[in-house]
Amino acid sequence: MKQISRKNWGWKITATGIVFLLLVGGLTGCDQGKTVSRSDFLLDTFVSITLYGESDEQLLDQPFERIEALNSSLTAFETGSDLGLIKENAGIKPVTVSEDTYRIIEKSLEYSKNSGGYFDVTIGPLVDLWGIHSPETKEAPTQEAIDAAKAKTDYKKIILSPDDQSVYLTEAGMAVNLGAIAKGYIADEVMAVLKSEGVKHAIVNLGGNVLVMGGKADNSDFGVGVEDPRNPGNGYLGVLSIKDGSVVTSGDYQRYFVDVAGNKYHHILDPFTGYPANSGLIQVTVVTNASIDADSLSTTLFLLGLDEGLKKVEALPDVEAIFITSENRIVVTSGLKDSFVFDQANYGDTYTITFR
């Protein structure tokens, strides 16, 4: 297996989405005849790519090389990276960036506008301030510090120039963070490489950010488990059957800290309040065609809450979602009625489920 070095990724600390450790469950179904697979610890998480109906392991070289190239382009913390240079030159001058960096920021800005600012690509100052990593005990930032960081969060202060492929943050102290979108972009790029190689059946799993193509080699669906947010890592509430598309989940239970008084602060930050979202949701799973769309929407819907999130899904084509509330309600949009099977036997006493 080709090893790719572990680096500090731009989405390692996310603000508006749980991108790197998304809690989509494992993929079921193994006996597919010829398969090739490779896995590694990348993007600060477990990454695997599996091809069905194939026997040439070299088909996996280019996809993993694409991941490595995007690491170099998109990391926020490495000296001289595009995002680092954008931050260093905020309020000073535009920075010419790579094609990948420009495209993902351009797309992020589109999502920022379409979400009314709930998805905000300039949430970097708040992400840096809160510094939410693995579970630990520490104190929340002061209100004064939160207000100062929030004042530097405003997607309307990004200027993109397609002529020279430059990005400019108009105010000093601003910073771009791609935590809620980067893995979706990478998954789509990896799948594009696989398609160019003639692969017909594949699973790309970037730490739970799942993108599948073509179903299994026997033309049956893949099964993607949706994790229990009340007991992460120890069970799946149900299984989604899907042949083509992406499944991405945002939740409040992987990246968080607890203060000495016992208050819990998760990593999905609301750019309007500057605090972790308090929307009444604990998990949102999005199913759609492109992983970049699923990634950004899972964050947006989590921030919007159940009622507004449902309205958002209903207004978008080819988007479905599974919402789980803090009151243990599971609400599944109508398009998943025939493809999501709830584990009633094991979870029927804990959760109530409604199909909309």
Score class of each variant (00 low, 15 high):
2 K>T: 09
4 I>Q: 02
15 A>N: 12
18 I>F: 09
22 L>R: 12
26 G>I: 12
28 T>F: 12
32 Q>W: 13
33 G>Q: 08
35 T>L: 11
40 D>A: 15
41 F>T: 14
45 T>I: 07
45 T>F: 06
51 L>G: 00
54 E>Y: 12
55 S>G: 04
60 L>P: 07
65 E>K: 13
71 N>D: 15
72 S>E: 13
72 S>T: 10
75 T>N: 13
77 F>G: 07
81 S>P: 06
93 K>L: 08
100 D>Q: 14
109 L>K: 07
111 Y>S: 04
112 S>K: 01
115 S>L: 11
116 G>C: 05
121 V>T: 12
126 L>T: 08
129 L>T: 12
131 G>V: 00
133 H>L: 13
139 E>A: 15
142 T>M: 04
142 T>V: 01
148 A>C: 02
148 A>Q: 15
148 A>S: 15
150 K>C: 05
151 A>V: 06
152 K>I: 06
154 D>G: 02
154 D>H: 04
157 K>W: 00
161 S>V: 01
161 S>Y: 10
161 S>N: 15
165 Q>E: 14
167 V>G: 10
168 Y>L: 08
170 T>N: 06
170 T>Y: 03
172 A>C: 01
176 V>K: 01
176 V>T: 09
178 L>R: 00
178 L>V: 11
178 L>I: 13
179 G>I: 10
182 A>Y: 10
183 K>S: 02
184 G>M: 09
188 D>T: 08
191 M>V: 10
193 V>Y: 02
196 S>F: 01
197 E>F: 06
207 G>Q: 09
208 G>V: 08
210 V>N: 02
211 L>A: 12
211 L>R: 15
212 V>M: 05
217 A>Q: 03
218 D>T: 04
220 S>R: 13
224 V>G: 00
227 E>K: 02
232 P>L: 15
237 L>E: 08
238 G>P: 03
245 G>K: 06
246 S>C: 14
250 S>N: 11
251 G>L: 06
252 D>E: 10
255 R>E: 12
255 R>C: 03
265 Y>V: 04
267 H>G: 09
269 L>V: 13
270 D>M: 08
270 D>I: 09
270 D>F: 09
272 F>R: 09
283 Q>F: 03
284 V>T: 05
290 A>L: 15
294 A>C: 10
295 D>Y: 01
299 T>A: 15
301 L>E: 01
301 L>F: 05
302 F>R: 00
307 D>P: 00
315 A>R: 04
316 L>H: 04
322 I>V: 15
327 E>F: 03
328 N>K: 14
330 I>P: 09
331 V>G: 07
331 V>Q: 12
340 F>M: 03
342 F>E: 03
342 F>M: 00
346 N>A: 11
347 Y>E: 00
347 Y>R: 01
348 G>R: 02
349 D>V: 01
356 R>P: 14
356 R>Y: 10
